[in-house]
Amino acid sequence: MEQTKKTWIDYYKKFGIYIFLAVVFVFFAIFAPNFLSSNNVINILRQVSMFGIVVVGVSAVMIGGGMDLSVGGQMAVVGMILGYLMVNLNLGIVPAILIGILTGCIFGSLNGILAIKLHMAPIIVTLSMMLVLQGVAYLITGGYPITGMPEGFTRIGQGYIGIIPVPVIIFLLFVVFGWIVMNKTYLGRHIYALGGNKEAARLAGINVDKLTIFIYAFTGFAASIAAVIMVGRTNASQPGAGSSYPFDCMTAACLGGISISGGEGKISGVVVGVIILGILDNGLVLMGVNSNFQSVVKGLILLIAVAIDCYQGGKKKRIK
C-alpha cells in the first residue's frame, strides 16, 4: 500500500534546508557583530564562491551515485600548474588558465576511469587519488608556494563588476549552468537515472561508463575553475590548497539534500547548503569562536544530514 501520509522527513526534505537557513541567519544577525550589512553578505558570497563551484561539481557526481574526495588535491595541483606556467614559464594568463582547466578535466576523467575499471566504491578510489595529488602538488616546487602572479590575473579573484565580486559572478554562472544541465537537459535526466539505478539506466540504453567519466570530468573542471579563483584571490599558488574541501563539499551537498545513495537532490538545495556553511563560517568568526569548533559543528551537521537521509531511505525500502 502506498504511503500517502506525509512524515516529518518529507517536510524536512522539502522545507528543512530553508528553515535551517533562516534560523542560522537570524541567530547570527542577533549575536554576531556587524553580520547584517550588505558588505558582509557580499563577503559571505565571495568566500563561498570557490567552494560553491566545487560543490556543484561534487553534487553532480553524488547525484550520479558516486563521490569525489580528490577535489582538494585537484585544486592544489591545478593551482601549482597555473602558478608555474605564469610565473616560472612566463606563459600568458589565458593559455595558462586553459591548460589548468584541461588538467583538471584530465584528473577528473582519470577518477571516472578508475572508478569504472576498478569496480570499487568511488569514494575509496578518489581517496587514493587525493593522496597521490596531494603528494604531486608538493613535488612541483618542493613545497614552496609560487607568488607574484601577472598583473590582471588577480582581478579574477579580487576584482569587481559593479559592486559584485568577480568570483561571485562566476559562481552564479556556474550554478545557472548546473541547474540548466540537471533540470532541462537529457544529460541531467541520465545522471539522475544513473544514480537512481545504474543497472536500469544501462538497460535503458544509457552509456553509463561514458556518463560516469563525463560527470567526474565535470567535477575536475569545477575544481580547476575554483583553483583559478583561489590563486587569483591569494596571489599565490599553494601546494596545500583545498585541504578542507573534500569534507566541506560533502557536508554542503548532504545538507543541501543530495542523497548519499544517489539519484536525488537539487542544485538549488546545494546552493542553500553552501550558503549555510558560508554563514556559519562567517558568523562564528565574527563571534570570535575558535576555528576548530567550526569544524566540529560541520561534522555534526554532516552526521545529522546523512542520518536523516539514510533513515528516510531505509523507511522507503521497508514500506516497499
Binding site: S128, M129, V132, L139
Partner: peptide, 9 residues
C-alpha cells in the same frame, strides 16, 4: 602520500 595512494589503487 603518493606511495600510499598508489599502493591502495
Amino acid at each position: 602520500n603518493i606511495l600510499e595512494g598508489s599502493i591502495i589503487l
